[in-house]
């Protein structure tokens, strides 16, 4: 049976990579006494997928993992036993039976809270951002050519409150924007460079499965 585990990552655990997070979840489930189902084929692997990778250093309040366990278990029992074996900084928020396609193929958008210093005129930045048709940033990655990305097209909501930006970024077939890119783009519109103090992923929204009741 496949379970959808919603979990938070905070404190020092935020420095775990995506792969380390997966392995940490698997190890904790095994220590909790669960038998994880394996994929078919020559090299069977545990059946687990995370809805969305998390960049190293970003905290999350509600990441999602789909994992298939052998046998039937009460979701509450899965959550309680798993919670006892997670390292400091990782906590279980909820466990429920997963239905339909896996979460990784149904991510619609992601919301972030970006804590920033208020030495930028964010309200002016937000106004300029709302008025702009496009807002490009240069994305660089090791061993890859840099490319220009229009982050405006991915932003579905953006708000400022003292000390923080709240944003929602769409996840599409054409990709998505990173919260720090959007923050930098908004600040750049008013000629500033932002000082990001903390990045927290606050929610992952999934598309409803086809045919599901709303």
């Amino acid at each position: 049976m496949t379970y959808r585990i919603t979990f938070a990552v905070a404190g020092r655990a935020r420095f775990l990579s995506h792969l380390e997070t997966v392995d940490t979840l698997l190890g904790a489930l095994r220590r909790a006494g669960f038998d994880i189902a394996l994929s078919k084929g020559m090299k069977p692997r545990p059946v687990i997928s995370l809805a969305l990778p998390r960049a190293v250093g970003i905290e999350t309040l509600a990441d999602i993992a789909d994992v298939e366990l052998r046998g039937d278990h009460e979701p509450l029992d899965v959550g309680e036993r798993l919670a006892n074996h997670l390292p400091m900084g990782m906590t279980v928020i909820a466990v429920e039976p997963a239905t339909g396609k896996q979460a990784a193929s149904r991510v619609e958008s992601v919301t972030y809270r970006v804590e920033v210093a208020d030495d930028v005129d964010w309200d002016a930045g937000l106004a300029a951002f709302a008025a702009a048709e496009a807002c490009e940033v240069v994305r660089t990655a090791p061993n890859k050519a840099s490319k220009r990305v229009d982050v405006r097209r991915f932003c579905t909501a953006l708000a400022h409150e003292p000390g923080a930006l709240e944003m929602e970024l769409a996840v599409t077939d054409a990709g998505t924007a990173r919260p720090e890119e959007l923050t930098q783009a908004v600040a750049a519109l008013v000629g500033a460079t932002p000082n990001i103090e903390r990045l927290v992923r606050t929610a992952i929204r999934l598309r409803e499965p086809v045919g599901a009741h709303t």
């Binding site: 020092r12 655990a13 420095f15 390292p87």
Partner: peptide, 19 residues
């Protein structure tokens, strides 16, 4: 230390807290 960990490769090398 946490501030420095934001800037280095593989920061999980330094955080401890393993099972």
């Amino acid at each position: 230390i946490e501030s420095v960990l934001e800037t280095v490769q593989k920061p999980s090398r330094y955080i401890g807290g393993e099972a």
